[in-house]
Amino acid sequence: MNMADDAARATGDARAEAMARRDRMAVLARADGKRLRALWTGLSLDPAFEMIRGPETGLATVRGRISGDGAPFNFGDVTVTRASVRLSDGSVGHAYRLGRDLGAARLCAVIDALARDNASATKIDSALVRPLQQAQTQRDARRQAETAATKVDFFTLVRGED
């Protein structure tokens, strides 16, 4: 019983960790390369690492769905750059980003590898990921507000009775 609980907790923890990693990768993938490098420099981290793969640029074929929610179809390609690194402590990190910025993909893979360690993850999240995420959220909110200002307010004209 206890063992089952432990297993369930361990599974839950693993899932939460995977989701946190996923969310971090999503922020890093969307981040502007210049801003990413500036924040990284501010962290003063310089771990030794070796490249396992890449950084390399290739294509992903984008799929849509017929009528938005039906069967999938391919509708075009997008450039993607990926990188995988191994730190000297053995941690492995991966990165995927739209576009062709090799340096940014390599850096994102290093950050992903460092964040496999909980203490480093906390530091990276507060000093690098959160500021990037805030900037992204602000950009989205600003654009939403600009779009909302173009919403049509219909009004009904009163019909004359005479």
Binding site: E56, T57, G58, L59, A60, T61, V62, R63, G64, R65, G68, D69, P72, N74, D77, V78, T79, V80, R82
Partner: peptide
């Protein structure tokens, strides 16, 4: 360019 794969279908909703 090499091809890395196919994305999950985009969710336009």
């Amino acid at each position: 360019l090499p091809r890395f794969g196919y994305t999950r279908p985009v969710d336009t909703a």
